[in-house]
């Protein structure tokens, strides 16, 4: 906000993931202010088998949320295929028809479509648009009437603070879960190996191309023909995404890009409030409802404690994190 002074005890909005109706209910029952979800097709960036919502499930989810004072955002955050815009346009039309509280979009063509066809439907800018500076964000706001921007996971808290002073729109930041180390929406590593990418297909390192080989003394993960990692018997594992793999460079084997780790900013809530952030986003539409319930309830307590000015509760979410490690990622500038 341009003129707003930081309010230390302002309450952050908690935006939580759901891949199934059961997870949606788990999120809301555990204190989510908002649940974000996607349709069961290539229009969203978690286009995983057996996941996501039919139109009927969306209608039921909206009822469940609205009856309990919560909201539903619909992620339509992949880039439509040339010659085949219909599934994406239908997703936006249906989000408006069913009464979703916002759509989360990345593609400029879709933002343009939504702004023209459904001016009253709230438009949020997806992290997949990778809008990481005030010039770009103000452009999306002025051109497409975007109400909120989900910030890329490449910015430090200092940069977010400076950014919020130069833009006139709400910002939402990732607070917990999977961590993209590459700029989102600008990464073709997955398609280089599998032919399928987040931008085009809504998948990264898709499960259909992943193979685990138990070789007795080690568990080897492969994406297509490429060896991504090898874990010793008791070693903690991570997702088989390329950027969390172990590679050899300069004669040394290492996690060159990033360790298998999860983002967790719970210790930084005061800084994020002071940075002018409006909402916290929890990653993990592909995770089970046990994960959703556990993370959402803990973040509910933390956000409430932050707003009340009481001590933040101890949280133990390590057991559910990737590689069973946490990081504050790019929020701390030394991460770079």
């Amino acid at each position: 906000m341009i003129s707003e002074t930081p309010e230390t005890h302002k309450k952050l909005e908690l935006v939580c993931p759901a891949g199934t109706p059961a997870s949606l209910r788990a999120a809301i029952d555990n204190g989510a202010d908002v649940v974000y979800l996607g349709f069961r097709d290539e229009t969203n960036a978690r286009n995983f088998p057996g996941l996501n919502f039919s139109r009927e499930e969306l209608a039921q989810g909206l009822d469940y949320a609205h009856q309990r004072g919560a909201e539903i955002y619909i992620a339509i955050n992949t880039y439509p295929q040339a010659g085949n815009p219909d599934p994406w346009h239908a997703a936006i039309d249906d989000a408006a028809t069913y009464g979703a509280d916002a759509v989360i979009l990345a593609d400029m063509g879709l933002l343009d479509y939504a702004a023209r066809k459904h001016p009253d439907l709230n438009r949020h800018l997806s992290v997949q648009a990778s809008a990481s500076n005030p010039q770009a964000i103000n452009f999306y706001v002025e051109t497409f009437g975007v109400r909120r921007v989900v910030l890329p996971r490449v910015l430090s808290v200092i940069e977010i603070t400076a950014l919020n002073k130069q833009i006139s729109v709400q910002t939402e930041v990732f607070a917990f879960g999977g961590l993209c180390v590459m700029a989102e929406g600008r990464c073709a590593l997955s398609s280089y190996v599998t032919g399928q990418s987040p931008n085009m297909n809504g998948v990264c390192s898709p499960a259909g191309h992943v193979h685990y080989e138990d070789q007795g003394d080690q568990l080897v993960s492969k994406l297509g023909t490429v060896t991504i990692n090898a874990f010793a018997p008791e070693e903690k594992a991570g997702y088989p995404t390329l950027c969390k793999g172990r590679f050899k460079a300069r004669g040394t084997v290492s996690y060159l890009f990033e360790e298998p780790t999860s983002l967790n900013v719970v210790a930084m809530l005061p800084e994020l409030v002071n940075a002018g952030v409006t909402a916290l986003k929890i990653e993990g539409r592909q995770r089970g409802r046990a994960y959703i319930a556990q993370v959402v309830s803990q973040f509910r307590k933390a956000v409430d404690a932050q707003a009340d000015g009481t001590t933040l509760p101890d949280m133990n979410l390590t057991s559910i994190t990737e590689g069973q490690q946490n990081t504050v990622g790019a929020y701390d500038k030394t991460w770079r």
Binding site: A237, Y239, Q294, E322, G323
Partner: peptide, 13 residues
Amino acid sequence: EGKIDGDAQFFSR
């Protein structure tokens, strides 16, 4: 029964 998260079980081996 959805009491634990499958990914977490996988991460912990």
